[in-house]
């Protein structure tokens, strides 16, 4: 799935190139959110059975 998202991101960047390059803020936000998404994706790819937030909270509260 992460590869599909990668291709879609490149396509989205090409499609909205003018809008993103017009303002530095737009580009930075786009890159920041993309990096966040990919970090989550890579962590999931490396360890798919990582405990969920709900599990962690449940364990902590008990």
């Amino acid at each position: 799935m992460i590869y599909a998202f990668g291709i879609l991101l490149i396509l989205s960047f090409i499609r909205q190139k003018e809008l993103l390059l017009k303002k530095k803020r737009n580009l930075l936000l786009f890159l920041f959110l993309s990096v966040c998404g990919f970090t989550l994706g890579i962590v999931h790819l490396v360890s798919p059975y990582i405990p969920s937030i709900a599990y962690a909270i449940e364990k902590y509260l008990k």
Binding site: S12, L29, F30, C36, S52, I53, A54
Partner: peptide, 28 residues
Amino acid sequence: GFLFLPLAIIMFYLTKYVSATQFEFRYF
């Protein structure tokens, strides 16, 4: 418009990180 796709990627993976099963979902 340019926010939609990066946010979609975040949401896709965040959904897995928040709760993975029916029981975890109910608890959360």
